[in-house]
Design a protein around this nucleic acid. Structure first.
Lengths: 159, 159
DNA sequence: GTAAATTGGTCAATGTGGTTGTCCATATAG
DNA sequence: CTATATGGACAACCACATTGACCAATTTAC
């Protein structure tokens, strides 16, 4: 009888997880660039998600992203210049300025959603629907329930 | 008969992949901190891997990490101060300075390897050996063969 | 064998994205 | 009405990357 193959080294699992993430995100942004959104960076998808469909304030955005309100404000400023976000006064509270996605920002989100579906279909084509579902189920078991851990900036820093 | 559950949205797959990576890396560094390596950051593992067992130069390190030689030099400098790296003259080429792991650096790598094995065992305990192996096989099919894409710094930047 | 080109390392200036501290205008609680 | 809390902006600073320039040492061309 043949012996079972040896376990892969423990470090391969996290590296493959990250590599798979990176492959998908690179593919997403290559396609987004082809469709007219070449300025968007991986980070920006998290920012848009943190803003949400109804908009939010710079302070709240900073809380969700795990950065200071000033850093959030600068992100908004640059994405405003790029045409993805706009700021409007809140009629209910003269202190607040609501940050919202522009039509262009919403377009990039809609395109991202379609591209993600297409990429998932590619995975189904290679692995089969059952295997991919099993993979997603397993990952769901090993990760926190809330999908939106948006505090990315700084997580990967060197200090 | 019951209908099949709907497919999850396409964006869940990359987010779960990243979340799983992050869970593992956070656990690694929590344990490394407990074992006396609290200064190490997620990035540093990639730097150590890029240096390799025989050492390398700052220029070559920069190439492997996808950053300028100056940036690589600064990383080395700070990890040298922290006691993880040392620089020695190359007797064969007076221009080159070989960057090597110190005993402390090698210790952190050995501990990381053991911690990764332990974390993989945890995954086996939850998912079972077969499911985890299937997950690793699937990820291997969907990612580049070379595990060591080390050009992390800057990949996740906003500009 | 020498001149020219390449390579490795360092220094300096700069840019970007983050931080904290401060301040003002507006709301809210007592 | 007064005191406190909140949202936003401005300034100074810091970490970490960049490019450009330069020198010493090596390698290549002739």
């Amino acid at each position: 009888m043949s012996s079972a193959p040896p376990d892969p080294p423990g470090f391969e699992l996290p590296l493959r997880l990250f590599l798979a993430f990176r492959v998908i995100i690179d593919e997403l942004h290559a396609e987004l660039a082809r469709e007219g959104h070449s300025e968007l960076r991986p980070m920006h998808g998290f920012v848009f998600q943190a803003i949400g469909p109804d908009g939010t304030t710079a302070v709240e955005l900073g809380r969700r992203l795990g950065v200071s309100k000033q850093a959030a404000g600068k992100m908004v400023e640059s994405l405003e210049r790029a045409g993805y976000l706009e700021r409007a006064a809140d009629p209910r509270d003269a202190r607040r300025k609501i940050v919202r996605l522009t039509a262009r920002g919403a377009d990039s989100l809609a395109r991202s959603a379609r591209i993600f579906e297409r990429i998932r279909d590619d995975w189904v084509a290679v692995l089969g629907a059952d295997r991919l579902r099993a993979l997603e189920d397993d990952l769901r078991r090993m990760t926190p329930a809330d999908l939106w851990r948006l505090d990315m900036p700084g997580w990967f820093g060197t200090s």
